[in-house]
Simulated assay, not measured.
Amino acid sequence: MLVPVSWQVAVDGPLLGLDRWVRHAVRESRHELHSTLLNHLGKALSDLGGSVPAIPVLLAGGILAAWRIHRAGAARRWLPPLVAVLTAGLIPLLVVPAKAWFGRPGPFGVPLAPDQWGWYPSGHTTTASFSYGVAALLVARTVGAAGRRRLCGAAALLSVGVGLGLVWSDYHWLLDVVAGWCLAGLVLWALARWLPTDPPPPPASPDSSTHRPAAG
């Protein structure tokens, strides 16, 4: 999906009509609902895609995964922090050149300044999807199946929430957000296939003093 969407943005194709239709529908909904709560929620969700808090969560996920691997007595405890750091560096390397190359104006249609990047793909969506997704993936390799489902579900909800918040707040076109999701999805898919699964740490053993047989 990333390739056809990017092609449509590059050539100003008919698919961009979807962006305009969604923006009009969202603006009409905001006007009719006139909900301060929803507007604040949209902005709060959008802010979750900023470098703070997304990058600290990513790095914390790498550290937590390394600690759990260490507790389990497995090797490669160095791998999750390394993956987290490399992911944090990869985000701008992918997003900034793409924004500069496409040079897409934002929803308000104001021409870009000479020193300004474009809106495509959405940096906040990409940052959130990469950061929360990779953090969840790293920790998920050290827990059981139920824990993996919860972590991956939470990361997906955060990523979707950030994207919807950006569209609701009129910060980005819908296709900007979709491109961020697709870009992160490709990297997460490749990373999930490459990363080894580490065993969860053993449960804490009970205090031996509480199980010492009574002297007879």
Rank of each mutant, 00 (worst) to 15 (best):
S122G: 12
F108A: 15
V96G: 02
G106L: 04
H172N: 10
D170F: 06
L164S: 06
L137N: 06
T126N: 08
G103M: 01
V95L: 09
V110D: 13
A98I: 03
D176P: 01
G153E: 11
P114H: 09
R141P: 02
Y171S: 11
V162I: 08
F108Y: 15
G165L: 02
H124T: 10
A145P: 13
A154S: 03
G161V: 09
P107Q: 11
Y132Q: 01
G153Y: 07
V167D: 05
H124P: 02
G123L: 02
G106S: 03
V134Y: 00
P92L: 08
Y171Q: 14
G165A: 04
G144N: 10
L158Q: 02
F108H: 15
G165C: 05
G161S: 00
G109S: 09
G123D: 09
V95C: 11
A135H: 00
A155W: 00
L90D: 07
W168I: 07
R104D: 11
G165H: 00
W173G: 01
S159R: 05
G165I: 04
P105V: 14
L90A: 15
D176V: 06
P114L: 13
R150W: 14
A98D: 02
G144E: 07
T125C: 12
K99R: 12
A98Y: 05
G123H: 08
G103N: 10
A154E: 04
L157G: 12
P121D: 03
A156Q: 01
L137I: 12
R104L: 08
